[in-house]
Measured scan of single mutants.
Amino acid sequence: GKMTGIVKWFNADKGFGFITPDDGSKDVFVHFSAIQNDGYKSLDEGQKVSFTIESGAKGPAAGNVTSL
């Protein structure tokens, strides 16, 4: 299901970062391709987001990332 969290950091040049889930679980990798907006796909440190957990090739990653 949907989770919420805070963006820990995001490197716009490399197109990835990490989200710290509100439930205290392990930080989740986020790739820019998972960001659900029409414009420039980037996130800001400290931004609140909702997301799902998808299993990627390198382990769990955030999917369906939407800013709240």
Rank of each mutant, 00 (worst) to 15 (best):
G1E: 15
G1L: 08
K2N: 14
K2T: 15
K2I: 15
M3A: 09
M3C: 05
M3I: 13
M3H: 11
T4R: 05
T4F: 12
T4D: 04
T4M: 10
T4K: 08
G5W: 01
G5V: 00
G5C: 01
G5P: 00
G5H: 00
I6P: 01
I6R: 13
V7C: 04
V7T: 04
K8N: 06
W9C: 05
W9E: 02
W9L: 04
F10W: 13
F10K: 01
N11P: 02
N11D: 12
N11G: 04
N11I: 06
N11V: 05
D13P: 09
D13K: 15
K14L: 12
G15K: 05
F16N: 02
F16S: 03
G17V: 02
G17L: 01
G17K: 00
F18C: 03
F18Q: 03
F18E: 03
F18S: 03
F18D: 01
I19S: 00
I19E: 00
I19K: 00
I19F: 02
T20C: 10
T20A: 13
T20Q: 12
T20L: 12
T20Y: 08
P21W: 04
D22A: 08
D22L: 10
D22G: 05
D23C: 06
D23P: 03
D23G: 09
G24K: 10
G24I: 04
G24E: 05
S25E: 08
S25Y: 07
D27K: 04
D27Y: 04
V28W: 03
V28E: 01
V28C: 04
F29I: 03
F29Y: 10
V30R: 00
V30Q: 00
V30E: 00
H31F: 11
H31S: 05
H31M: 04
F32E: 07
F32V: 11
F32S: 09
F32L: 06
S33V: 04
S33L: 10
S33I: 05
A34F: 04
I35C: 04
I35R: 02
I35L: 10
Q36H: 10
N37Y: 13
N37R: 10
N37T: 15
D38G: 11
D38E: 15
G39I: 09
Y40G: 10
K41I: 07
S42F: 14
S42L: 12
L43G: 01
L43E: 01
L43Q: 01
D44P: 12
D44H: 15
D44A: 13
D44T: 15
E45D: 10
E45S: 14
G46Q: 05
G46W: 05
Q47N: 08
K48R: 15
V49W: 01
V49Y: 02
V49C: 04
V49T: 02
V49M: 02
V49F: 02
S50W: 10
S50G: 06
S50M: 12
F51M: 03
T52S: 09
T52R: 04
T52C: 05
E54W: 10
E54P: 02
S55A: 15
S55L: 14
S55N: 15
S55W: 12
S55V: 15
S55D: 11
G56Q: 12
G56W: 09
K58Q: 13
K58L: 14
G59T: 04
G59K: 07
P60E: 10
P60D: 10
P60S: 08
A61L: 13
A62Y: 01
A62H: 01
G63L: 12
N64M: 12
V65G: 01
V65D: 01
V65W: 00
T66L: 10
T66F: 06
S67H: 13
S67Y: 13
L68H: 09
